[in-house]
Design a protein around this nucleic acid. Structure first.
Length: 283
DNA sequence: CCGCGGGCCTGCGCGC
DNA sequence: TGCGCGCAGGCCCGCG
């Protein structure tokens, strides 16, 4: 479910509540997520201090004082929730992991579909971890640039929409923001990636950063169940230009197109056939 | 090598 | 009210 803006929003919440605090206990109620949580997860993270919370693509990384790193992904339906100190709030169905902190707060990992994952690794193994090693550049980093993206896409016959979802090309974009970015770039989602010119790709990079920045500023998007750590809903869904707006008018000034939904590789794509048309982009 | 489709799971909203 | 279906913010893997 969560894409980069939602994960970044959760990261900021975690950093505020967890940084420099100690994990006093961990309960794993359901170790079977996308993969099984390692058996030593509890013993190796208990009684450690959380030094920092980082994000890489859609992954969250908790740096622990014993040189271990907790790695997690929220999948489609995962969320983290913080429970106030000594709160007697009931745990929910699908609260699979609970961390207890020295602040007497608790953090829960909730994931009905269990497409999420939690792992524990040595910090020295971060660059070789199979899930992390294959990630492409961060959208805001300098290695995500026109020259490198041009060469990445040069041999890709598949649609640019699919390429944006490929975490090896750029890390953090998911199904919502792929559609929004292409609309902002005026690029039709079906365009074979290899057909984009350098100037299109430059536009795409700028649009990617602008959309993700705005979405982070709005604390992400809430469609169904996404919440920030403290339970706040995101606001970026109010700014969607195309996502989930099939049949509605295009929001671009002067464009009278209507938003269309198509399916690419089994996933919905939303776009405006009028202004995302290379022959009409000249004005 | 690349690209696609299936599979993993649960829940929700819709039409009948 | 109930049931079946399609759909959902992701990602891995096997196959052609």
């Amino acid at each position: 479910m969560p894409e980069l803006p939602e994960v970044e929003t959760v990261r900021r919440g975690l950093a505020k509540h967890l940084a420099d605090h100690t994990i006093t206990d961990v309960e794993v109620r359901r170790p079977h997520l996308r993969w099984i949580i390692p058996a030593e997860f509890v013993s190796q993270s208990r009684n450690t201090r959380i030094c920092a919370i980082r994000r890489r693509g859609k992954y969250l990384l908790w740096d622990l004082s014993n040189e271990m790193v907790i790695l997690m992904h929220l999948g489609m339906s995962g969320s983290l929730r913080i429970l106030a100190p000594d709160s007697d709030a009931d745990l929910l169905k699908h609260d699979h992991v609970i961390w207890h902190l020295d602040t007497r707060e608790r953090v829960t990992f909730h994931d009905p579909r269990r497409f999420g994952m939690i792992d524990l690794l040595n910090s020295s193994d971060e660059s070789t971890h199979p899930r992390l090693a294959i990630l492409g550049p961060e959208p805001f980093a300098s290695d995500f640039n026109t020259a490198s993206l041009v060469s990445c896409l040069a041999a890709r016959t598949s649609p640019i929409k699919n390429a944006l979802l490929d975490q090896m090309i750029v890390a953090g974009i998911g199904n919502i923001y792929a559609s929004e970015i292409l609309w902002a770039s005026r690029i039709p989602p079906q365009t074979p990636a290899m057909n984009l010119h350098a100037e299109n790709i430059d536009t795409l990079i700028q649009a990617t950063r602008r959309i993700l920045h705005r979405a982070i500023a709005a604390s992400g998007s809430t469609l169904r169940n996404y919440r920030s750590l403290e339970g706040e809903v995101g606001r970026f869904q109010n700014e969607f230009a195309v996502y989930d707006r099939e049949g509605e008018r295009c929001r671009r000034r002067g464009c009278d197109g209507r938003i269309r939904r198509i399916v690419q590789s089994g996933r919905s794509t939303f776009y405006c056939p009028h202004c995302q048309d290379p022959d009409k982009n000249r004005d």
